[in-house]
Design a protein around this nucleic acid. Structure first.
Lengths: 366, 366
DNA sequence: GTGAAAGCGCTAACAG
DNA sequence: CTGTTAGCGCTTTCAC
């Protein structure tokens, strides 16, 4: 018994369709007695309005899309995206929204998916993970009336609303921590340089080093792509230049890099110290606990949904951006506990901005 | 310019709505010349049919739901679900389907989501990850006309279509491998015993041991919940009973368990050998490469979508089940390379059934 | 406070 | 091969 329509309920309750509709949409202009009677029938029949019909007239589906370019196989290799997805899904649940997930792996996927996404009558708005691969989609979106929000600063900023984490500042926190601990040969493993996250983190690292009057030795910097294996390989290149500390732009790469260090017969943090980036769950349970920059990933997803919802409901047209803060989480790999030159904070101690600080319209300097 | 309707295109092309509709739905009964003309206008205007309207009349949305109970925070801690999600998403792309993701974390989520899911006009069908937590949803689904498929054998099998991996057999492969290598004190770390995957794997382990005339010492078996930390803790309990080999029901737990082993000053596989389960990407890059049972997770997602699609399109009513095979992947942690009692296969060698073997209607015995 | 009527944008008989 | 017509199931003026 589940193909009831509004009309059936109306008949059963002895009222008109309109009244039932009013009850369902909790319009105030309904006699309490009538309302009760109708509600009882709705309950007992298990009636639910047909969403397609409702969407057609209301021009709202209450579905939002999340588009993630899963270049190579990184969607499940790097826990970042699952965590982001979870944050977004959580926020959707809390806002009576349904989440549609679009994993686009290649050009064909993008071509297949783009029209489905921008088509009306399907999505109320879209969250798109920034990526150099999503150019076409962004362009298409820009010329459509579909509300959308970029996750992470996009390559081309103009007229695109976005939400991001303060990557420059996060990298500064990492570098400053290592500098403060007295390390002399600090290296860096970067993410894929096409990504703005990687360029911003590199920029922050450079700024911190230069402010501390430190030169960056080219041999101490190597490029990865955020994956474990790329961290491993990058570290192998750097190793011969004798670093005493490494800032890795992702935890996963740090894990790969530490694997290379151990294979070379060296140890962490005694021979080489590490600071990662992300604070993924794995960071706190790995053999040597990772000092890292915590990103509020889940919170990021929640804020993103709220921001998009605001755009959908209020038709916001101005270019908005929201930048979330980061925290330094001190554990073991940075060697803070064993460096005498440093007044070591306790393990698991957290430095810096509160977890949920939102900086709208710009970043603050550390 | 993107709120065009069918009628606008019709006017522009000098034909009726129906003709435009026929062109869009590639009906054969259209004059080639007319078709070309209409297509050109559609292209140049960038028109796309409104999906809500189409769904309302066709009773199809081309959206399927994927429901995952993300008890605790396991969605992003255990890479299993991301990988499954990716497989499902991939299959959706290939079938012109949109995927809606429902992460249900608690009772409120379930209450919130259930009516949205079973409502008509939203989803064509549903994939539900089996879990003891999903009882209510399954019940609701059973009494609705919504096509759905359980991912993994559900607690209550009656009248529920499901797809699963051959857990009993996979566990047998693991146990037999350890037995064949000559280990004498073989232990097991189980997943959460409420899950059918865990009970099936335990069953397979027991069968293999008993067939080999081996007793299972109670102290050598401990319960985990598929998480890293639970593997770590389970191993600590088992350690005092001096096992020489462990079958861990998930790779992630094996990683936690090996951490406990190393902390105790022992080494893998010299002191304690390991066989995991899942063959997650992390298994092949961890410090000591994990021998494990490979599940065709991505393939599983693809098959699930195909099966659901079949149910949707052909209204299949009979109880169908599909059971996918597993493979033993031999790497380093089982000690095959260092045991002289065993004619060791080469590293990375794979034993057993082909990757994509589908067994419909039952399982074969090893 | 309630009902009648119009219409959201599309598909699908049914004529012609 | 093409146009006309009748809905799909709901929300929403507009009267009463």
């Amino acid at each position: 018994m589940d193909n009831l329509k509004l009309e059936d309920i109306a008949k059963l309750a002895g009222v008109s369709r309109s009244t039932v509709s009013r009850v369902i949409n909790s319009s105030p202009n309904v006699d309490p007695a009538t309302r009760k009677r109708v509600e009882k029938i709705i309950d007992s029949t298990g009636y639910h309005p047909n969403l397609a019909a409702r969407s057609l007239v209301s021009q709202r589906t209450n579905i939002i899309g999340l588009v993630i370019p899963k270049t190579t196989e990184t969607f499940f290799t790097d826990p970042y995206f699952p965590q982001l997805t979870q944050g977004v899904a959580f926020a959707c649940n809390n806002n009576h929204l349904t989440l549609s997930l679009f994993l686009v792996g290649n050009e064909e996927d993008e071509a297949e998916i783009t029209p489905r996404i921008t088509r009306r009558g399907m999505l109320d708005g879209i969250l798109v993970q920034s990526s150099e691969k999503m150019d076409k989609l962004f362009k298409k979106l820009l010329s459509s009336s579909m509300p959308y929000l970029a996750l992470g600063r996009p390559q081309e900023e103009e007229a695109v609303n976005y939400i991001d984490v303060d990557n420059v500042r996060g990298a500064k926190q990492a570098a400053n921590h290592l500098i403060g601990l007295g390390y002399q040969r600090i290296g860096m493993i970067t993410g894929a340089i096409q990504s703005t996250a990687a360029t911003d983190r590199s920029e922050g690292f450079r700024q911190a080093m230069s402010k501390a009057q430190r030169k960056i030795e080219p041999g101490l910097v190597a490029e990865g792509d955020f994956s474990e294996i790329s961290g491993y390989e990058a570290m192998k290149k750097i190793l011969s230049h004798r670093p005493d500390a490494i800032f890795s732009q992702s935890d996963i790469m740090a894990i790969g890099a530490m694997r290379a260090v151990r294979e070379a017969g060296l140890s962490v943090p005694e021979d080489i110290a590490f600071v990662g980036y992300d604070d993924l769950p794995i960071a706190s349970v790995s053999t040597t606990k990772l000092t890292t920059i915590r990103q509020p990933i889940t919170h990021f997803g929640i804020k993103a949904v709220e921001m998009l919802l605001d755009m959908i409901e209020n038709g916001t047209k101005v270019a908005n951006r929201m930048i979330l803060g980061t925290e330094l989480v001190i554990r073991e790999t940075c060697g803070a506990g064993i460096r005498t030159t440093f007044s070591a904070p306790k393990s698991e101690e957290i430095e810096s901005v509160p977890n949920s600080l939102d900086i709208i319209g710009g970043t603050t300097d550390q």
